[in-house]
């Protein structure tokens, strides 16, 4: 707003106070996770409510890496999440492009179908999916997870991609087609470079979703070799007597990729959803 107004001291203080509250609310739980992960096991309960333990140690991190199958889970999660993110983004980009650029019969029906996929309790389809995947002999494979995750993430990713495409003027493609491009070339040379932020945002969005997913992972995977990280984390609870410090250390590790990714893409997410973001 370029309207001139006198800075109001109380308002400014209030604003920064509010910002501080938001930040504290957002970060304190993460801080607590970190605190527990560096607390030596013997102090977990005695220093339970202290803001910082009287002693700290990085042993938990060491033992997570050296003594558990955490690295396997981590690798599996990376494969599943990247695979899901990449495939979903490609499929959703194609669908979002169709929604953004074409008017065709059945468009509303297809949008309706995609909306319905967001509406029902997942449990209703878990047993059937289990049976189908088992029937195909795909239990305990990462492929089965990637396929299921992709299907569930495609609808929202499609709406995301559509709004990114909507922000790119149709004129640009038409100009490219007149300049000698086929539609595919026009998309590749003109639309694609302008959608990169959108693609990055969708990629990151789906990655975080796949990285966290637990329900299907529990159902479809029970071999240690193909467990993803959330399932693996659950084994910390059930297998041994719970080692909270180790578990939290594993949690900190697990946060790193999705948080890094999210920090990187959140800007594009906002930017891309802002209509008319791309202007010549």
């Amino acid at each position: 707003m370029s309207v001139i107004s006198k800075p109001n001291l109380a308002l400014t203080i209030g604003k920064y106070l509010a910002l501080a509250c938001y930040l504290a609310f957002a970060l304190f739980p993460l801080y607590w996770l970190f605190k527990i992960s560096v607390t030596p096991e013997k102090l977990i309960y005695t220093d339970g409510i202290a803001l910082w333990p009287s002693e700290y140690t990085f042993d938990n991190f060491k033992s997570v890496i050296l003594l558990t199958d955490f690295l396997v889970y981590f690798k599996n999660s990376i494969i599943v999440s990247f695979g899901t993110a990449a495939i979903t983004t490609i499929i959703a980009a194609a669908a979002g492009y169709a929604f953004s650029r074409f008017n065709f019969r059945g468009k509303k029906v297809i949008i309706g179908i995609m909306l319905i996929t967001q509406m029902f309790p997942l449990l209703i389809i878990i047993a059937p999916i289990y049976k189908i995947i088992a029937g195909l002999g795909l239990l305990n494979t990462l492929t089965s997870l990637i396929v299921v995750y992709t299907a569930f993430n495609v609808p929202f990713a499609t709406f995301l991609m559509q709004s990114f495409f909507d922000g790119i003027p149709k004129d640009l493609e038409e100009a490219a087609m007149i300049d000698g491009c086929s539609r595919f070339q026009a998309v590749r040379k003109v639309v694609f470079p302008l959608t990169l932020p959108g693609l990055a945002a969708t990629l990151g969005f789906v990655f975080t979703a796949a990285w966290s997913e637990l329900l299907f992972a529990i159902m479809l995977i029970n071999s240690n070799d193909t467990m993803t990280f959330p399932v693996g984390l659950l084994t910390f609870v059930s297998k041994f007597s719970v080692d909270w410090g180790q578990m939290m250390a594993a949690g900190v590790f697990a946060l790193i990729p999705s948080c890094l990714f999210f920090i990187f893409i959140q800007r594009y997410l906002v930017q891309g959803l802002t209509s008319g973001a791309v202007k010549g």
Binding site: L30, W211, S212, P230, A254, L255, S258, F262
Partner: peptide, 14 residues
């Protein structure tokens, strides 16, 4: 902005 959106990236289970 980067920090404030972080909780979204935390796995639900965690």
């Amino acid at each position: 902005q980067a920090l404030i959106f972080l909780p979204w990236a935390v796995p639900t289970f965690l």
